[in-house]
């Protein structure tokens, strides 16, 4: 893979460019020859059966995993999991995990202020103030001093969203953000994500929530067997899928049994 520093792309290009990317663990190919672009302000929803490499793909975008071939370009910088500049790149990409991954030894507030203080060099006072703005955004201002273990799953995920927001990233990635939640708290998290979309945030969302995908997504990418089967407006994919596999998947999630 080419990693020359001079090889950057003009800013008017898409915020995220994915060119023929392949990921494998040893001999096992996770996904193969994936290509698509994300424009600033777009909400792109990735759907598909479990085990088709959707989550792994997100992890490649912020360099938690490396790629074997192809190229990922984020805001003009080539993503290379092994290079030093991956750290500065990650500041601009927020990531929300299925299992929240809050720091259990820190309060909700400290979870949110840690990176602004340590990475952006903000003072505690400024970081605290901004964190409280984020807590208002996710409607948890009354829970800021709680520890993660004292919060419900939905609350934990909203803190995780606040933690990512506090870095004011230009792309937010959600890796099945509601899959580990009790049904009654799923709505709270989706409502906040919808609000973020309305604020004009660029979002890349892996989810099984078809309602959300249809309602909030600008674009839907259907992945199966490690490749992109179909890419288009969500209503299109849900109502008139072109490919047979998309059809089968849509039928199975929209009309179970």
């Amino acid at each position: 893979m080419s990693t020359e520093p001079g090889l950057s792309v003009i800013q008017t290009d898409p915020i995220l460019r994915v060119d023929s990317v392949t990921k494998s663990f040893g001999k096992k190919i996770i996904f193969n020859n994936i290509s698509f672009n994300v424009q600033a302000g777009q909400v792109v929803v990735i759907v598909g059966p479990s085990g088709t490499g959707k989550s792994t793909f997100l992890r490649c975008v912020n360099g938690l995993e490396d790629i074997q071939s192809g190229r990922i370009v984020f805001e003009g910088d080539i993503v290379n999991a092994h290079s030093k500049n991956i750290v500065s790149l990650r500041k601009r990409i927020g990531m929300i995990f299925q299992n929240f991954n809050l720091y259990p030894h820190l309060t909700a507030l400290e979870n949110v202020t840690l990176a602004p203080m340590k990475v952006l060099g903000e003072s505690r006072k400024l970081a605290d103030e901004r964190a409280m703005d984020m807590f208002r955004k996710v409607r948890l201002e009354h829970r800021a001093s709680a520890y993660p273990s004292q919060l419900s799953g939905g609350e934990q995920q909203r803190v995780a969203i606040a933690r990512a927001l506090a870095m004011n990233p230009s792309l937010m990635m959600f890796d099945e953000p509601t899959s580990a939640l009790d049904p009654e708290t799923v709505g709270d998290v989706l409502a906040i994500m919808e609000e973020l979309a309305r604020d004009g945030r660029t979002m890349l969302v892996v989810t099984h929530e078809m309602g959300f995908a249809d309602h909030v997504g600008d674009r839907m990418i259907f992945m199966d067997g490690g490749t992109i089967i179909e890419d288009g407006p969500p209503s299109e994919l849900l109502k008139n899928p072109k490919e047979k596999r998309t059809q089968q998947f849509v039928n199975s999630v929209l009309r179970p049994n």
Partner: peptide, 13 residues
């Protein structure tokens, strides 16, 4: 848990 490191790395630490 592995997720702890990943979450922290993801914030740019």
């Amino acid at each position: 848990a592995k997720g702890q490191r990943e979450a922290a790395l993801s914030t740019g630490m």
